[in-house]
Every structure is written in structure tokens, then in C-alpha cells.
């Protein structure tokens, strides 16, 4: 597994753990009134579970298992995927912070970072999706 995938997947696991703690706290607060801090942290739970965990895990695993170019992954792509990692996690953290402080500034900033991260990932992964037929033709020629 490429090192950047290790970082992406492990970061996604941390978001899963943190998001699950917040989710369990929120359910305990709704049911029994325990852990009242959780009442204001539902948006953080949703953000961590959907973007921090799910999207980041998919990006990390995709970068690992999608077919590589015959010439190998370029240095530029290998550097830019680290930017995806930084932008995505910065975005999730900013959106999470926006649940408690400066929502007018942090929320758009966080969403912009997340959007830039997934757009960059889409561009980097675009040419790594090929049909079996195209691959077989190259092998035969």
C-alpha cells in the first residue's frame, strides 16, 4: 500500500473513531440527557462520518488499488495526492470547528478545502480507470 494511502486510511479510522464517540454521546444525550456537550456536536459527527471517514477511506483505498499507468505514477501526481490528504483533513477540521466558532468564516473555508481536495483527486484518478478491453489491447499490440 503506498505511504499516502496508509495516511489517508489511518486518518479515516481516526475520524471514524471520533465520529462514533460523538454519535454515541449524542444518542446518550437524546435518550438520557447525559453528556450535554454532544447536543451541539451533531454536525461534527455527520461531517466526520461522511467526509472524514467515508470519502477519505474511499480515496485512500482507490489510490492503492486502481490500475497504475504503465510508466508508473508520476512524481507530480505522487506529490499532489499528499495535497489531497492535507486539503481534505483541513476541510473537515474547519467544518467541525465551524459548529462551535466563527461559522460564517470557517464553514465556507472548510467546504472549499473539501471541494478542492475531491476535485484534485478526481483529476488524479481519472486516467487510472480503464476497461479490461483497453488493457488487453495494449498487451496484445
Amino acid at each position: 500500500m503506498p505511504r499516502v494511502s496508509v495516511w489517508l486510511v489511518r486518518a479515516s479510522l481516526l475520524h471514524l473513531l471520533s465520529g462514533a464517540i460523538l454519535g454515541a454521546s449524542y444518542l446518550a444525550w437524546r435518550a438520557a440527557g447525559w453528556l450535554p456537550y454532544a447536543a451541539t456536536h451533531r454536525p461534527v459527527h455527520v461531517e466526520q462520518m461522511l467526509v472524514g471517514w467515508l470519502v477519505q477511506l474511499v480515496i485512500g483505498v482507490a489510490w492503492w488499488i486502481l490500475p497504475r499507468p504503465e510508466a508508473g505514477v508520476s512524481r507530480r501526481a505522487a506529490a499532489l495526492i499528499w495535497l489531497v490528504f492535507v486539503l481534505l483533513n483541513t476541510g473537515v477540521l474547519l467544518v467541525a470547528l465551524a459548529a462551535t466558532v466563527m461559522p460564517d468564516v470557517l464553514l465556507p473555508g472548510g467546504r472549499a478545502a473539501e471541494t478542492a481536495a475531491v476535485a484534485l483527486f478526481a483529476a488524479l484518478a481519472w486516467n487510472r480507470q480503464r476497461s479490461y478491453r483497453a488493457t488487453a489491447r495494449r498487451v496484445l499490440v
Binding site: 473513531l17 462514533a20 454515541a24 454521546s25
Partner: peptide, 17 residues
């Protein structure tokens, strides 16, 4: 039930991590 389910789901996530 809700509190128990919160704990069970959290245990499952910790185990997976």
C-alpha cells in the same frame, strides 16, 4: 435500549479500528 445501542455501536467501531 438507546444507551445500550450507543455503547454497542461504539464497541464495534473500536474493535474495527
Amino acid at each position: 435500549g438507546a444507551v445500550a445501542s450507543a455503547a454497542l455501536q461504539l464497541i464495534a467501531v473500536v474493535a474495527f479500528v
